[in-house]
Amino acid sequence: MTDDAMNGAFARTAFLGTGSMSGAILRGLLAAGAPADRFRATTRTAASAERLRALGVDASAVENDADANRAAVQGARLVVLGVKPFAVADLLREIADALEPNAIVVSVAVGIRSATMEALLPPSIRVVRALPNTPVAVGRGVTGLSAGARADPAAVDEAAALFSASGSVVRVEEPRLDALSAVSGSGPAYVFLLIEQWERAAVSLGFTPAEAAVLVQGTVRGAMELLAATESPDPAALRRAVTSPRGTTERAIAVLETADLESLLVRASEAAIARAVELAESN
Rank of each mutant, 00 (worst) to 15 (best):
A47L: 09
A147E: 04
G19R: 13
T13G: 12
A103C: 08
L92P: 04
S263A: 15
L55H: 10
R150W: 15
L78V: 12
S181P: 08
R140W: 05
A271V: 03
V110Q: 02
V172Q: 05
S269D: 00
V183S: 02
G141H: 06
G187T: 04
I104M: 08
A68R: 03
L177N: 10
V105D: 11
S184M: 05
G28W: 04
P245T: 00
M117W: 12
A276D: 12
A46F: 13
T42A: 13
L193E: 13
V172T: 09
N64A: 13
P132E: 01
A68K: 07
L194Y: 14
P135G: 03
L227S: 14
G33T: 04
L205W: 01
V277D: 15
R40L: 02
R251A: 15
G17T: 11
A159K: 03
T219H: 03
D67T: 05
R126W: 09
G148V: 01
G222D: 06
R38G: 13
T13K: 14
A71I: 03
P35H: 01
P153K: 06
P153V: 07
T2C: 07
I95K: 09
R53L: 13
S22Y: 08
S22M: 07
A109M: 03
G17Q: 08
A71V: 03
N102C: 11
S164Y: 14
V255R: 11
E50N: 14
A271W: 00
G141A: 10
A103G: 10
R77I: 01
G8T: 12
A254M: 09
G17N: 06
V128N: 15
E281P: 01
P101S: 07
A228H: 13
I253P: 06
A147V: 11
G144D: 08
L265N: 01
V105M: 09
P175T: 04
D260Y: 15
R171T: 12
V277K: 15
L227D: 15
S232F: 07
L99G: 09
V73P: 06
L120T: 05
D97S: 03
D178N: 09
R53W: 15
G82V: 04
A68I: 01
P85H: 01
E63T: 06
I104N: 09
N69Q: 08
M1Q: 07
L261W: 13
E50D: 15
V127P: 10
G206R: 00
E118V: 01
A149D: 10
T18W: 03
G141D: 10
L29N: 09
G28A: 05
G167W: 06
T248K: 11
D157S: 12
L29T: 05
A271N: 06
D65L: 00
R200A: 07
R129L: 00
R240L: 14
A47P: 04
A32Y: 11
V83W: 01
L238E: 00
L215K: 06
D90C: 12
A115R: 06
L256C: 06
A272E: 00
F163G: 01
A161T: 15
T243R: 02
I125A: 08
F15E: 14
A72V: 02
P188M: 04
R150K: 02
E100S: 01
S114I: 07
P209T: 08
